[in-house]
Amino acid sequence: MNPDDWAALGVLRELSGALLGARSGAQIEEVLTRLTVSLLGTRYALFLRYDPAQDSLRVTAEAGEHASELGVVLPRGQGLSWRAALAPEPVLHVRGDALPPETVRLPGSPTQSALFAPLRTPGGKLLGVLTAGRIAPDFSARDEALLVIFANSGTVTLERTFEAERAAAAREGALLALGLALEARDYETQGHTSRAVALAERLGRALGLGEEPLDALRQGAYLHDIGKLSVPDGVLLKPGPLTPAERALMRDHVLTGEALVRCIPAMSPEVLAVIRSHHERWDGTGYPDGLRGEEIPFLARIFALVDVFDALTHARPYHAARPVAEALDIIRAEAGRHFDPGVVAAFLGLMEGQPEPVERSFRG
């Protein structure tokens, strides 16, 4: 194997490793442009993402030495990126001494050769165009082949990411639907699921959670009260105090919910812990297991506070909505008793200066 072949293998190894670490479309586009410049020795690289709604190409990533072009939009048919996107060939090579009339150049751009490699799925769906420029020397056949490999690798990785995003969106919708199923029975709690999920995510980020625990916290928040579907209306909707037997039945909803959600594929132990343990208390007087302090799973400690705050600040059959300031005073007083003091401190910092929630009537 000659030195050029070894060099090409090194380029592809670095590209594949970088793409494996990308977790979003924007990260993939950044990797493609950055490594095009560093590994192919180009003056610049741009990624133009295809927007099917506008039927246009838009610069969404750039690297190298050139005027800032982020956000530049090319309507269909405008510029060489579109010529490459609409042509059957895998790459378009335009030499600096032979730029066609439709070339789009920003003021001050030097004369240079350019390569354009469209990203197309096997079914012909256009994802974008990867383009690179160099003043000298002109691009070789090896450069063309490597840019095509970059584009093909980007296509595969983007498709993988889009599939994961679609699956996540479908899962999120299904979890929301399950949460709303309970709200359909209990009219006074409408909006609780969406509010609790949003606030739990904000608090989790304030506490420094990474994406995976944040995802588990969101899932647990969607499903935290799903076990109440097994509680009779006479107990669930009772406006007055519950009898000891009714209270025991109500408390069982966390165990029922955990058992139900355990049947959903790929639900993590962290999600189940939120459902089972969000009624535990820092001082050990909660349920169902009487856990104390750090025995309580961290995500459940976070959600316990969010759940109580939302219940305090929105009307229920057994109490009127409290002002935010009053609810925060209650949360503050319960630090070290009901709630983890560290979680309380983060929550109070997050909620400082927040406006009052708007109460709406759903009774027509």
Results as ranks from 00 to 15, higher is better:
residue 159 E to F: 14
residue 176 L to G: 11
residue 223 L to V: 07
residue 190 Q to D: 04
residue 165 E to N: 12
residue 206 A to H: 05
residue 173 G to E: 14
residue 227 G to R: 03
residue 217 L to D: 02
residue 219 Q to G: 10
residue 184 A to I: 04
residue 150 F to K: 04
residue 179 G to S: 12
residue 172 E to I: 11
residue 172 E to N: 10
residue 204 G to H: 03
residue 176 L to H: 05
residue 202 R to Y: 15
residue 161 T to W: 15
residue 194 S to T: 12
residue 210 G to N: 14
residue 154 G to Q: 02
residue 163 E to R: 14
residue 205 R to F: 14
residue 166 R to C: 10
residue 158 L to G: 11
residue 202 R to W: 14
residue 224 H to C: 08
residue 149 I to M: 14
residue 207 L to M: 11
residue 226 I to Q: 00
residue 211 E to S: 13
residue 215 D to Y: 12
residue 199 L to G: 06
residue 214 L to F: 03
residue 153 S to D: 09
residue 185 R to Y: 05
residue 173 G to T: 07
residue 220 G to C: 02
residue 164 A to N: 10
residue 154 G to H: 01
residue 228 K to W: 07
residue 209 L to M: 12
residue 160 R to W: 13
residue 176 L to F: 07
residue 219 Q to D: 08
residue 156 V to P: 07
residue 202 R to A: 11
residue 195 R to E: 12
residue 197 V to C: 05
residue 191 G to I: 08
residue 217 L to W: 01
residue 198 A to H: 02
residue 162 F to L: 15
residue 212 E to A: 11
residue 192 H to F: 10
residue 171 R to T: 12
residue 188 E to T: 09
residue 180 L to G: 07
residue 154 G to D: 04
residue 187 Y to F: 14
residue 170 A to F: 13
residue 221 A to K: 00
residue 194 S to H: 06
residue 205 R to S: 15
residue 172 E to D: 12
residue 153 S to N: 07
residue 208 G to H: 11
residue 156 V to S: 13
residue 164 A to D: 11
residue 229 L to F: 07
residue 175 L to Q: 08
residue 198 A to C: 03
residue 219 Q to A: 06
residue 200 A to M: 03
residue 185 R to D: 05
residue 208 G to M: 08
residue 199 L to S: 05
residue 171 R to G: 09
residue 155 T to F: 01
residue 153 S to I: 00
residue 209 L to Y: 13
residue 228 K to L: 06
